[in-house]
Design a protein around this nucleic acid. Structure first.
Lengths: 252, 252
DNA sequence: GGCTAAGATGTTGTTCAACAATCCTCAAGG
DNA sequence: CCTTGAGGATTGTTGAACAACATCTTAGCC
């Protein structure tokens, strides 16, 4: 009975928040926004959010089977609704569906990580190349993300560093101003976070890359997009190689 | 009662055929491949294939509402199964799901086309840039696609030209050797085909671009990737602009 | 007339129960 | 050791039912 009170969903900030600044607090929105409420979400979508949190939080580690009966009873929803939620997670590549066997939390391997970085490179480089003509808000988002990562590093808050690092790279891809690129990038990064779960402590893993993020940001701010491009390419290659090697060491 | 005979599905060749050459006709496959049959597909997947065909074939034009009751009766499947099929189409951006209102065949507008071309550019340029290190089979696929397009043009078979043109650009993106890029590209091109439905006769629309495809292919074969990159960028910009303008003219 | 409010209607959202189809386990048999 | 077959467990699919919502129609009122 987890979903009987409609207010019980405080978690948010997942996919699809492509704004760069907080909204002006709903100026002229009518009080009764019942018909066509854009924010309204079905039960299946809320269930998928809960499962996303559990997966990314490590409660449901990679390889876990998501039993329809057990989970449905746990979350207080029917099997059919749970199935619809599963489809949404399949769309994000967080779980995989095997016919007649069920859905399992994906456990991305080195090949997956390498592939994710290939697509990341394509999207982020496209963003960097479009930086000159990008609106100011998008460029400022890049700078902000770097700064936030550095602040978090000063505090020794490594999870926050990881989050800010990913936000930085998402901001790079977002320079293209393309909703589809944003959505694709979001799904990629969520999958990448899942891959990190199969690795030992990412404690300080991001630290050596912080300075390189700043370097890229500086090149961009100075309009030297070609240098930024080269730096970013090297960055992604190094990160990919480091992760892949680490995964191969710990999972022979 | 469309699904009572399991053989009734002759349609194929849709998404996810990432081979470049026909398979060697199953050499050592055991006769009984029942357990874990990779080709096995659920009812929902088959239904989604049928709907995909009807959408791309124009039987279900953009804007059409896909009623659960009517379609379920027509196809001989239950509402729940049909809903699962809908989710798959939503994933491909061929239909959109509005809460409490149902699913509708998407009708991509000029903004969508422009966005699709942004993502296309990112993926295809990444492929071109990786052409030097790409395996030969992938590079040959590019050449083959251009040739097929030219043959079809000689025969005046414009639908075939359109198909070959899209295959050429998919082959470009596939040079990266990334399954995720391939899948993304497939979804993009399916959506683009849908956008074409809202346009007047694409008769000879692809013709002026045929020579440019050949130009790109030649640059690639000669290892002049930078020239290929420039040509491809110009190509995509021109095509996007032409389509967007045409859409704006015919739909004020 | 034109506007608002209250039904009337049809559709989707969700649940429940049942059955068919498939996979997995494990023990019996060659 | 390998194969074969129950048996049990899980998923795939169906049908019906009810709640929730959107839309259309009608009635009422200024």
């Amino acid at each position: 009975m987890l979903f009987n009170n409609p207010q019980g969903f405080s978690r948010g900030l997942h996919h699809f928040h492509h704004r760069t600044a907080p909204l002006p607090a709903q100026e002229h929105t009518p009080v009764t926004l019942s018909p066509g409420d854009v924010m309204a979400r079905s039960t299946a979508q809320r269930v998928s959010t809960v499962l996303r949190d559990r997966i990314e939080g490590g409660v449901l580690p990679p390889g876990t089977q998501l039993s329809e009966e057990a989970l449905g009873q746990d979350l207080g929803v029917s099997r059919n609704t749970l199935r619809e939620a599963f489809r949404l997670l399949v769309h994000d590549n967080l779980v995989e569906h095997q016919l007649n066997r069920g859905v399992f939390v994906r456990s991305p391997g080195p090949a997956d990580v390498a592939d994710i970085y290939r697509l990341r490179a394509a999207l982020e480089l496209a963003g960097v190349r479009a930086a000159d003509e990008a609106p100011r808000a998008l460029r400022e988002a890049v700078t902000t993300a770097v700064a936030e990562a550095e602040w978090a590093a000063d505090d020794g808050d490594w999870p926050a560093v990881a989050t800010a690092d990913l936000r930085f790279h998402r901001a790079l891809a977002a320079l293209s101003g393309s909703p589809r690129i944003d959505a694709t990038m979001d799904r990629l990064l969520a999958e990448l976070r899942l891959a990190f779960h199969a690795m030992p402590s990412p404690r300080g893993f991001h630290q050596p890359f912080l300075i390189r993020n700043r370097t890229i940001e500086r090149f961009l701010a100075d309009g030297r997009t070609d240098r930024a491009e080269a730096e970013l390419t090297a960055y992604l290659d190094d990160a990919r190689q480091l992760i892949v090697d680490t995964m191969l060491e710990n999972r022979p």
